[in-house]
Design a protein around this nucleic acid. Structure first.
Length: 244
DNA sequence: TGGGCATGCGCAA
DNA sequence: TGCGCCTGCCCAT
């Protein structure tokens, strides 16, 4: 269930369980042949930016993972069960094994490759070095529905469909409002809301609020929630609380 | 048993 | 703008 909070949690957990160890890295499915190039390597750190995760091995080698919509990591105590036929990557440490299934991306990159990923991502509210001004300026430069902009990872990194729906509903902003018509105050509120929701998601390992996302009626005014296709993704909003 | 769907994204047209 | 892809699960048949 990957929005940014899931990836941040993986980075933290993998760091806690595996950093400082030489890892057995394999690809039972065979679709990550470069696993052999880091097999036995020392894991020196992990990092997350938006929905992108990096495992850094000694020698400036990074395994870049993007879970897409289906991807999952599973942690097993040793000895781990037989891998599934679809296990893209298995990492075996001193005390646990971690399996990766169904990712959009699992590739080996160098520092330049990692930086190239970072370069095309907007600020991630979960990162302490995040610069919300960059997101603000990106919204000003464009005139697209704010609901569409929030899912654009070059604007803000880590927000997915659920956090978008919940944050806009909480602050009574229609997903259809043009991005450059938000006031600075509204943007600041939205940024803070997303930051809090993401942090809460990391802590609780799930998205807890369910106000409009897939809801039938608005918890505030009982108006039926409207669902429509916004640039290829389902948008949810209360037509009464979030007027255009 | 099989179709549809899912918190995503890149690419062709 | 629409489609394909990565996988698992739920629900209808």
């Amino acid at each position: 269930m990957p929005e940014g909070h899931t990836i941040r949690h993986c980075a933290q957990e993998h760091a806690r369980l595996l950093v400082g160890q030489h890892l057995g890295v394999t690809s039972p499915q065979g679709r990550f042949p470069d696993a052999a190039l880091v097999d036995g390597g020392l894991l020196v750190g992990t990092d997350a930016w938006g929905k992108h995760l990096f495992h850094e091995y000694e020698g400036e080698r990074f395994v870049h993972v993007h879970l897409g919509i289906y991807g999952t990591f599973t942690t097993h105590p040793l000895p781990p069960p037989q891998p599934r036929p679809t296990t893209r990557m298995r990492i075996v440490g001193d005390e646990v094994a971690i399996d990766l299934v169904g990712p959009n991306t699992c590739e080996l990159v160098d520092t330049a490759g990692r930086d190239a990923v970072f370069a095309r991502l907007g600020p991630d509210p979960l990162r302490t070095d995040a610069d919300p001004d960059r997101a603000w300026r990106a919204l000003q430069r464009r005139r697209i529905p704010i609901g569409q902009a929030l899912l654009d990872q070059t604007v803000i990194a880590g927000v997915g469909n659920v956090y978008r729906a919940e944050a806009l509903w909480t602050h009574r902003i229609s997903p259809l409002r043009p991005s450059n018509e938000l006031t600075r105050e509204e943007f600041d509120t939205l940024w803070m809301e997303l930051t809090e929701l993401l942090h809460k998601g990391v802590r609780e390992q799930r998205i807890s609020t369910r106000n409009v996302y897939k809801a039938d009626d608005c918890p505030e005014c009982d108006t039926p929630i409207r669902r429509w296709d916004l640039a290829g993704r389902w948008a949810y909003a209360c037509p009464s609380c979030q007027p255009r």
